[in-house]
Simulated scan of single mutants.
Amino acid sequence: MTPLPEHLQQASRARIRRAEKRARTALAELVRTGKPVSFTAVAREAAVSTDFLYHSPELRHQIERHHTPAGSTPAVPADPRRGSPTSAAVRALSARLTRQQQAHHEEVTRLRKALEVAQGENLDLRRRLGRHETD
């Protein structure tokens, strides 16, 4: 394969820099506003592909560091010391429900992360297969 002319290489590098800047800005905005951070959310906000984010080591590290599941804010049970007429049984069930919700959130987070990794690997394998088929 012949190398690209210098002006096309420069244009490609500039396009990549703009996309990286949009992705960093989108990530910062998601973190600042407290919205859930994921590869999909950053890609959507920055108008880039998730593949682009997965293949950029710096962006990937930043997104993984800030990754949060959707709806990760745990439910706050009622404070029994406020003189609430809530019975002990209702408080116990509320606490149990909160623990179950947290466990489900953690499981969903783990599964989403595994799915994102699998999708990235799948895309990479498809591209590699495509290169081998054209030979």
Results as ranks from 00 to 15, higher is better:
residue 59 L to Y: 05
residue 115 L to P: 02
residue 2 T to L: 12
residue 126 R to F: 04
residue 14 A to H: 09
residue 1 M to N: 13
residue 83 G to C: 06
residue 8 L to Y: 11
residue 76 V to G: 02
residue 46 A to T: 03
residue 72 S to H: 11
residue 32 R to W: 03
residue 49 S to I: 04
residue 72 S to C: 09
residue 122 N to D: 06
residue 3 P to C: 12
residue 77 P to S: 05
residue 69 P to C: 05
residue 40 T to C: 03
residue 127 R to M: 13
residue 82 R to L: 15
residue 109 T to N: 09
residue 37 V to P: 00
residue 61 H to Y: 06
residue 90 V to P: 00
residue 100 Q to D: 12
residue 15 R to I: 03
residue 116 E to A: 10
residue 135 D to P: 01
residue 19 A to C: 10
residue 56 S to I: 01
residue 65 R to V: 07
residue 111 L to C: 09
residue 105 H to R: 11
residue 19 A to I: 04
residue 22 R to M: 06
residue 35 K to E: 15
residue 10 Q to M: 11
residue 3 P to E: 15
residue 130 G to I: 01
residue 102 Q to P: 00
residue 7 H to K: 10
residue 134 T to M: 07
residue 121 E to L: 14
residue 10 Q to S: 07
residue 76 V to A: 14
residue 129 L to K: 06
residue 33 T to M: 07
residue 71 G to H: 13
residue 39 F to A: 00
residue 85 P to K: 04
residue 13 R to T: 10
residue 19 A to V: 03
residue 84 S to T: 13
residue 30 L to H: 03
residue 42 V to N: 02
residue 26 A to K: 01
residue 130 G to K: 03
residue 126 R to N: 06
residue 38 S to H: 03
residue 70 A to Y: 02
residue 135 D to K: 08
residue 25 T to M: 07
residue 131 R to D: 06
residue 3 P to R: 12
residue 47 A to V: 07
residue 53 L to N: 02
residue 127 R to V: 08
residue 50 T to H: 01
residue 4 L to S: 12
residue 42 V to C: 03
residue 94 S to W: 02
residue 107 E to S: 09
residue 121 E to A: 13
residue 12 S to E: 12
residue 20 E to K: 10
residue 11 A to P: 01
residue 15 R to Q: 11
residue 28 A to P: 00
residue 10 Q to D: 13
residue 108 V to C: 07
residue 98 T to D: 14
residue 19 A to T: 05
residue 108 V to K: 07
residue 107 E to K: 12
residue 32 R to I: 03
residue 110 R to T: 09
residue 18 R to W: 04
residue 77 P to L: 04
residue 118 A to H: 08
residue 95 A to G: 08
residue 61 H to S: 14
residue 9 Q to P: 00
residue 120 G to Q: 05
residue 61 H to G: 05
residue 127 R to D: 12
residue 88 A to R: 07
residue 98 T to I: 14
residue 89 A to Y: 04
residue 99 R to T: 15
residue 122 N to A: 10
residue 59 L to P: 04
residue 24 R to K: 08
